[in-house]
Amino acid sequence: MKIAVACADDNLEAAVDARLGRCANIVVVETDTMEFEVRRNPGALAGTGAGVAAAQLVADAGAVAVIAGNYGPNSLSAFAAGGIKAYIGAGKIREAVQALVDGKLEPVQ
């Protein structure tokens, strides 16, 4: 399955970004192979609607779940409506994704 992760950098050893809407990049990881692609977050520099723009990217990338340090209300309502699970994560992306696969991450209520 594909997992989208908020990130300031462009690789799996980088840290999960504290914010989804304003993170620089969104890393989309295929958990079966740990292959990934880096997409620039259009929300990073948006005047308003950053969370919605990031959520749209996550959905368009085909991700079924998303990991970030925190979320705004708009992105959360978008994920809830679209059935994409949002998780709170920190630390290295590789480890956060593994934690999600192992069922150790907290989903946002």
Partner: peptide, 9 residues
């Protein structure tokens, strides 16, 4: 970003 199409929503 005032309108979004998130999968079926």
């Amino acid at each position: 970003s005032a309108i979004a199409v998130i999968r079926d929503a």
